[in-house]
């Protein structure tokens, strides 16, 4: 871990990963040779966050909110339209060399444990692949893969030579974690990585992730629709709705005193295991609208119970401090929302 200790020397706690004004829209139809108005899906607009060493940021939201696209944009699996990403102060993406280095420092674990392993490679070969790409000699890469298998709780003697289809979903996800760690990353992105697992296995994997974060001094970006899991594993949480960040802050702050009506609705949709603590009324009605036809003004206004005229005409600005932010007219005195507290 020598390279890592060198980095901690940076004074003033420079954020390890910094994401600034990340945006992406996808072209859907029109505007080409055939004419017509060009239509776009605004997949992600203006995402900003910092990730400090050894900490975890959770990204929550419903399907279509842009959380997975955010992960792919950070990894440069999709090219962002705009935005700056830097790791330890070094900007990423300007030249191929910085991208290759970045892809070694940042790794990703996907939801579908089976689709993310090549069925023709043995477990060992899959784990070794990334390291050999970055010039690690084969013998060393194999040793490391065995170490990591051991570390994620799979006996290398039993599993190294097996193929993915011979493993259970939980075991495969452990392999994917080992594969991500094989290139000695600083940041690991988990895109719904525990969502497909059985609950008892999910708990095992979450425990493992906590141990690994400490042992390898990792930072996590943890994307999930499961609010319980995000609360358990994250230090900071970012709530997204239709491609926009609606609330951001330390996880206990956001969970205990949510400011945005959407965050409040999301949190009161969390189910309790206590049969005496049942939900009486759904916090919001309807489905999220299609990202193709975004409402004007605040994108949550059609489902919001505090909606006022201003919400339908003006998109709220982000207010708050560097560590705690909300995008809602309700908490912005300047906006003149009738229900605004101040």
């Amino acid at each position: 871990m020598n390279d890592m200790t060198a980095n901690t020397a940076t004074p003033g706690g420079t954020p390890k990963l910094s994401v600034r004004e990340l945006s992406k829209r996808f072209h859907v139809s029109g505007g080409g040779l055939m004419g017509g108005e060009a239509r776009y899906v605004h997949a992600v607009s203006d995402v900003n966050f910092n990730l400090d060493k050894g900490t975890t940021i959770g990204i929550v939201g419903e399907s279509g909110c842009g959380k997975s696209t955010t992960a792919r944009l950070i990894m440069h699996l999709i090219n962002p339209d705009s935005g700056k990403i830097s790791l330890d102060g070094d900007p990423v993406g300007a030249d191929p060399a910085s991208l290759k280095k970045f892809r070694r420092d940042v790794q990703m674990v996907f939801q579908d444990s089976s689709a993310s392993l090549n069925p023709r490679l043995t477990i060992e070969q899959s784990i070794m692949f990334g390291a050999t790409i970055h010039g690690t000699p084969k013998a060393e890469a194999r040793k490391r893969s065995h170490y990591l298998l051991n570390r994620v709780g799979l006996d290398p003697a039993r599993f190294a030579g097996r193929y993915p289809h011979e493993l259970s979903g939980g075991q495969r996800q452990r392999v994917n974690i080992a594969r991500a760690l094989a290139v000695q990353p600083k940041v690991v992105i988990f895109d719904e990585a525990v969502s497909a697992l059985d609950k008892s296995v999910e708990a095992q994997v979450l425990n493992l992730l906590n141990e690994l974060r400490e042992e390898f001094e990792l930072s996590y970006i943890f994307i999930s629709h499961d609010l319980h899991v995000v609360r358990y594993i994250s230090d900071t949480v970012m709530v997204m709705y239709l491609g926009q960040v609606v609330e951001y802050g330390p996880v206990e702050d956001v969970y205990n005193t949510p400011q945005h009506p959407y965050t409040k609705a999301l949190l009161s949709s969390m189910l309790s295991v206590d049969p005496d603590d049942r939900t009486d009324a759904a916090p919001i009605q309807g489905d999220p609208p299609s990202p193709l036809d975004l409402p004007s003004g605040c994108c949550f206004s059609p489902r919001c119970s505090h909606v006022a005229d201003i919400c339908r005409s003006l998109s709220p600005r982000i207010t708050g401090t560097r560590t705690r932010q909300v995008a809602c007219h309700l908490v912005d005195p300047a906006a003149g929302h009738p229900e605004c507290a101040t």
Binding site: S168, G170, Q171, S200, A203, L206, N207, D226, V251, V273
Partner: peptide, 21 residues
């Protein structure tokens, strides 16, 4: 099953997960 749900699990504490599969 009940103790391995993360409902209400404290951050940083190890979840009381069922071992094995």
């Amino acid at each position: 099953l009940l103790s391995s749900t993360v409902h209400g699990a404290k951050k940083g504490e190890t979840i009381d997960a069922i071992p094995g599969m």
